[in-house]
Amino acid sequence: PDLGLTQLFADPNLIENLKKNPKTSEMMKDPQLVAKLIGYKQNPQAIGQDLFTDPRLMTIMATLMGVDL
């Protein structure tokens, strides 16, 4: 199971919303991170391994779920 990750990354406004959010806007200036996020739309399971190697993803996930870290 993808634990709902498919829906989190399926939002067509995902990148724009993250660019507008004060907690994630600075991160979204990294083209490699943006490319990763776009890739998760097609393969949400890929985030599982990346969560352990890129701490920014935890902040992004929390933001998408509405959790304040």
Score class of each variant (00 low, 15 high):
Thr24Asp: 00
Ile60Pro: 00
Asp50Gly: 05
Leu3Trp: 15
Asn17Val: 12
Met58Arg: 14
Met58Ser: 10
Thr53Glu: 12
Asp54Leu: 00
Gly48Leu: 15
Leu69Ser: 14
Lys19Thr: 11
Thr63Ala: 15
Leu33Val: 04
Ala10Glu: 11
Met65Val: 08
Gly66Gln: 09
Gly4Ser: 15
Pro44Arg: 03
Thr63Glu: 10
Pro22Asp: 05
Ala10Ile: 08
Ala62Val: 14
Glu26Tyr: 06
Asn43Arg: 04
Ile15Asp: 00
Gly39Gln: 13
Phe9Tyr: 04
Asn43Glu: 05
Ser25His: 11
Arg56Ile: 09
Pro12Asp: 10
Pro12His: 05
Pro31Ser: 07
Leu33Phe: 11
Lys41Glu: 08
Asn13His: 12
Met61Ala: 11
Gly66Trp: 05
Leu69Ala: 13
Asn43Asp: 11
Ala10Val: 08
Lys41Val: 15
Gly66Glu: 13
Lys36Arg: 10
Asp54Gly: 01
Asp2Trp: 03
Met27Arg: 01
Leu37Gly: 00
Ala35Arg: 10
Gln32Pro: 03
Pro44Trp: 08
Asp68Gly: 02
Thr6Ala: 15
Gly39Met: 12
Leu64Ile: 09
Gly39Thr: 10
Ala46Tyr: 09
Asn43Ala: 05
Asp68Pro: 01
Gly48Trp: 15
Thr63Trp: 10
Glu26His: 11
Lys19Trp: 04
Gln7Gly: 11
Leu8Glu: 02
Ser25Gly: 06
Asp54Asn: 02
Ile38Gly: 06
Leu37Thr: 00
Met58Cys: 10
Leu64Arg: 01
Ile38Val: 11
Lys36Asp: 04
Thr6Pro: 09
Asp30Pro: 00
Lys36Phe: 06
Gly4His: 13
Gln49Gly: 10
Ile60Gly: 00
Asp50Val: 03
Ile15Trp: 04
Met61Leu: 14
Leu8Trp: 08
Lys29Glu: 08
Gln49Ser: 11
Ile60Ala: 02
Ser25Asp: 03
Leu69His: 14
Lys29Met: 09
Ala62Met: 14
Thr24Pro: 00
Asp30His: 02
Lys36Ile: 12
Asp54Val: 01
Asp30Asn: 03
Asp2Asn: 12
Leu37Ser: 00
Leu5Asp: 04
Arg56Met: 07
Asn17Trp: 12
Asp30Lys: 00
Val67Asn: 12
Glu16Arg: 05
Met58Val: 15
Thr6Glu: 14
Pro22Val: 06
Pro1Val: 15
Glu16Tyr: 05
Ser25Ile: 06
Gly48Asn: 14
Ile15Met: 06
Ala46Trp: 11
Asn43Thr: 06
Thr53Ser: 14
Arg56Leu: 10
Lys41Ser: 15
Thr24Gln: 00
Thr63His: 10
Leu8Pro: 03
Ala46Phe: 10
Asp30Ile: 02
Ile60Lys: 00
Met28Glu: 00
Ile38Ala: 10
Asn43His: 08
Glu26Cys: 07
Asp11Met: 03
Thr24Phe: 07
Ala46Ile: 08
Lys41Met: 15
